[in-house]
């Protein structure tokens, strides 16, 4: 390989040894990226399937969980990502134009927006940690029992006692916490519980707070897996952008050679699009139950 690679004459900058010309190379990397994105769609597809199956079964639990997510942060992130897609597209444009300065500036902006997105995500995750909404036992903040508050007795559900010596905390082991069953009551009154819900939230005809909590926990499980994997894709995207920044800085890309910028852009747009689906599914569906 080395013998061959070294003796091969390089027609163009960035032309790899296995290709005949730049056209072939660019076509190859472009097809490769599209195929990779097809793979990514299938990857997230499994999760979307799981989401749809359980939302179909337990719409009230999903609405309850969803309503606790703050659409302000979600909306802000959507906006941030859409703008970052614009700056990414401009990066490709300036790479084609051969404008190094603006190219670098746009990459920096894109990375900035990407970081803002992840920062907001961190704020949201912290909120879940503080409210005991991480579905993994032990990964939640232990909450002191609020003995003074009168609303404890006003809870919507028959609350099961939390037992033994550790009664300083409502979740002594950092368990997942969920108490609000008002949506089940609402649905019960208006008679639109699904068949699965009639089994899934009730014990002997009474609303069972623990069983409802488990369904909300399902929502948060799916929420964390989906947004977590999405955030992982963002982090990988930022890594790619860092590499792109360095290559752009040393002036690699111009009108003749900009394929890496283009396919990185494809990837970035794809990650945005996934979020465009995640945002309404996770944050917005179910908000009408608030009013």
């Amino acid at each position: 390989m080395t013998a061959h690679g070294d003796t091969h004459e390089h027609h163009e900058p960035g032309l790899q040894h296995q290709f005949e010309d730049m056209n072939q190379q660019e076509e190859s990397v472009s097809i490769a990226m599209w195929a990779f994105l097809a793979q990514e769609i299938m990857f997230f597809g499994g999760l979307f399937t799981a989401y749809l199956v359980f939302r179909w079964r337990f719409p009230m639990a999903f609405a309850a969980g969803s309503n606790h997510l703050d659409p302000f942060w979600g909306g802000l992130n959507t906006l941030v990502l859409i703008v970052s897609s614009l700056t990414m597209a401009l990066t490709v444009y300036y790479a084609q134009k051969g404008n190094r300065t603006l190219q670098v500036a746009m990459i920096v902006l894109t990375m900035l927006f990407g970081s803002v997105f992840l920062g907001v995500k961190a704020i949201e995750y912290t909120d879940k940690y503080n409210h005991g909404l991480v579905p993994v036992t032990g990964w939640n903040k232990k909450v002191k029992e609020d003995t003074s508050a009168p609303h404890v007795t006003e809870q919507d559900c028959t609350q099961v006692g939390h037992g033994d010596g550790d009664d300083h905390y409502v979740n002594p082991k950092g368990e997942f916490q969920w108490k609000d069953c008002s949506l089940v009551k609402l649905a019960q009154e208006k008679n639109y519980l699904t068949a699965d819900e009639k089994i899934g939230y009730f014990t002997n005809g009474e609303i069972d707070a623990d069983k409802f909590r488990d369904k909300v926990r399902l929502f948060y499980f799916i929420y964390f897996v989906m947004t977590g994997l999405h955030a992982l894709h963002m982090i990988i995207g930022l890594g790619v952008m860092l590499w792109l920044l360095w290559k752009a800085w040393i002036g690699t890309y111009g009108p003749k050679y900009y394929a890496p910028v283009e396919i990185s852009g494809l990837y970035w747009h794809f990650v945005d699009i996934v979020w465009i689906f995640l945002f309404p599914l996770l944050y917005l569906l179910g908000r009408h139950f608030l009013h």
Binding site: A50, F54, R57, F58, P135, V136, T137, F176, D196, G200, K211, D214, K215, R217, L218, F221, I222
Partner: peptide
Amino acid sequence: ARIGIFDPAIG
């Protein structure tokens, strides 16, 4: 995590 979408015990 000891919880999840394939566990019939919680739906």
